[in-house]
Design a protein around this nucleic acid. Structure first.
Length: 108
DNA sequence: TCGTTGACAACGT
DNA sequence: TACGTTGCCAACG
């Protein structure tokens, strides 16, 4: 299959995140069968600089906090992108996270 | 090959 | 309820 390593598997799922929706690292990891490797998902996202198709800004931690915004070009670029999709973000935290949460295990 | 790293998650205090 | 510590696993140097 296309997914050779863990990274590409993460991209495969991340790309499928619907517009205006968000998910968590753990959710993706669990879907990949590596529930304990939530941190690996974050690491994979660090390489998304080479994968512009991957909406890393839609991936947040389980608290709905934009932990990875610091890795984006702009300080608040991640928040800008989310707000641009209709996602309300306050203090680096996604509001109504439960409603916007997209579970690949359930939806995909 | 081994040790360190890391955009998390869960548990305990 | 909030904060601190531990555990997990795979990639990097």
């Amino acid at each position: 299959m296309g997914g050779k390593n863990f990274f590409e598997k993460v991209y495969k799922v991340a790309v499928k995140i619907p517009y205006g929706r968000v998910t968590s690292y753990g959710a993706i990891a669990k879907y990949l069968g590596a529930a304990g490797s939530a941190r690996m998902v974050g690491w994979a996202m660090n390489a998304t600089g080479k994968h512009p198709n991957v909406p890393a800004h839609r991936v947040v931690n389980r608290k709905g906090l934009l932990t990875g915004k610091h890795h984006f070009k702009g300080t608040n670029l991640m928040q800008q992108l989310l707000e641009s999709e209709g996602v309300v973000v306050v203090d680096n935290q996604v509001q109504d996270f439960e409603s916007l949460f997209w579970d690949p295990m359930l939806e995909l």
